[in-house]
């Protein structure tokens, strides 16, 4: 555990809670991609199956349970509780174009050809692109609520901090994982355009809206 890892996890937790609170307080999931949230629920489920087989630490187990629980709660709020406010027409990203290639890649490129390891690899690859339906939705509608941009910023910050964490682990533990690093860098790059808009617009008190 190092400072980048811990702040990365906390940033990730903040993102998840910001999104849940936004939906709960406004009684609406307008502007939120249900497809991205389903993908994140799949990511957590396939990665944290080791909750049942391996104990790492209390911190590790608790965070995993919280992440999975929040992911399913978010999906429930979007597709069940506040379904009437879900903007399905604008959430039109074709997720099969992500899930199928990512599944194929996980079978082809992994550390070990075993069920658990392939699912872990699948979750790493899927997480790197799971935000695309959300970014696609924003580019389609041309705007995002400020609270949604805070959610995206925390999520992107978590990825960036994890990269620093891996640099740290490489220097101090002599360990690196190419699969996670490549997927993590891809994921962080996807946020760069958004980071730019966040700093130049949202932090200056303006709403995030894209030029028509």
């Amino acid at each position: 555990m190092n400072i980048f890892r811990l702040t990365g996890d906390l940033s990730h937790l903040a993102a998840i809670i910001i999104l849940l609170l936004k939906i709960w307080k406004s009684r609406s999931c307008a502007g939120i991609s249900g497809k991205s949230q389903i993908l994140f629920a799949i990511v957590f489920t396939t990665r944290y199956l080791d909750l049942l087989s391996t104990f790492i630490s209390l911190y590790n187990s608790c965070m995993k349970v919280i992440y999975i629980g929040c992911a399913y709660a978010t999906v429930y709020m979007i597709y069940m509780k506040f379904r009437a406010t879900y903007d399905g027409n604008h959430d039109s990203f074709r997720v099969e174009f992500l899930v199928v290639p990512v599944g194929g890649l996980a079978v082809l490129i992994n550390h070990d050809f075993s069920f658990m390891e392939i699912l872990w690899t699948f979750s790493i690859y899927l997480e790197s692109v799971a935000i695309l339906p959300q970014l696609f939705m924003i580019s389609k509608t041309g705007e995002a609520e400020t609270i949604t941009t805070h959610y995206l910023f925390c999520l992107g910050l978590y990825r960036a901090l994890y990269i620093f964490n891996w640099v740290w682990r490489f220097y101090f533990e002599g360990f690196f994982d190419l699969i996670a690093i490549v997927a993590g860098v891809v994921q962080t790059i996807l946020y760069c355009d958004f980071f730019y808009l966040y700093v130049t617009k949202v932090l200056k008190g303006k709403k995030l809206s894209l030029p028509a």
């Binding site: 080791d50 590790n60 550390h111 070990d112 390891e117 690899t121 994890y162 994982d177 996670a180």
Partner: peptide, 10 residues
Amino acid sequence: GIDSQLKDEL
């Protein structure tokens, strides 16, 4: 098999 050592991460 050779598993990833990153299993302690989230």
